[in-house]
């Protein structure tokens, strides 16, 4: 043949579905939380270095961009936590019917939004 065989497109034309989008969200929030773990360790090291270093770290964390990052992080925490439950339920070979997958998926999205807003409303008041 005169032209090599092309590969048919995959992500470029496949429809985003709740299944794949939520799985990608789980991975993305996981990476964000891994970075948060390193940030937590750094914050604790700042605390161990004394009041001056810790106040510096707190100023960064409680600044406006810092609070924005914290908001996104709590969203990531609750999403990864709720979807993590869903994953653990699947690992026990339960809730694999299509209806359960979709209901659970939307429930996780709703729960993470509700928990994040509830937490931030509580903190800010």
């Amino acid at each position: 043949m005169s032209y090599p065989r092309p590969k048919s497109p995959n992500m470029q034309n496949y429809r985003p579905q709740l299944t794949s989008v939520m799985s990608f969200g789980h991975r993305l929030s996981g990476v964000a939380l891994a970075l948060f773990a390193f940030g937590l360790a750094a914050w604790l090291v700042a605390g161990a270095m004394g009041p001056a270093a810790f106040d510096c770290a707190q100023a960064v964390v409680l600044s406006i961009p810092g609070r924005a990052v914290l908001f996104l992080l709590t969203l990531a925490v609750f999403y990864h936590l709720c979807n993590g439950f869903r994953h653990l339920i699947w690992d026990s070979v339960r809730a694999f019917e299509l209806r359960a997958i979709y209901t659970g998926g939307w429930a996780v999205v709703a729960a993470s939004l509700v928990l994040t807003s509830a937490l931030w409303l509580w903190v800010l008041t």
Partner: peptide, 20 residues
Amino acid sequence: LACAAGGAAGIVATLLIAIT
């Protein structure tokens, strides 16, 4: 290695804050 280092740093820092 990074996770081991991060974990170790965090644990030592926690102990230092708790003890001192």
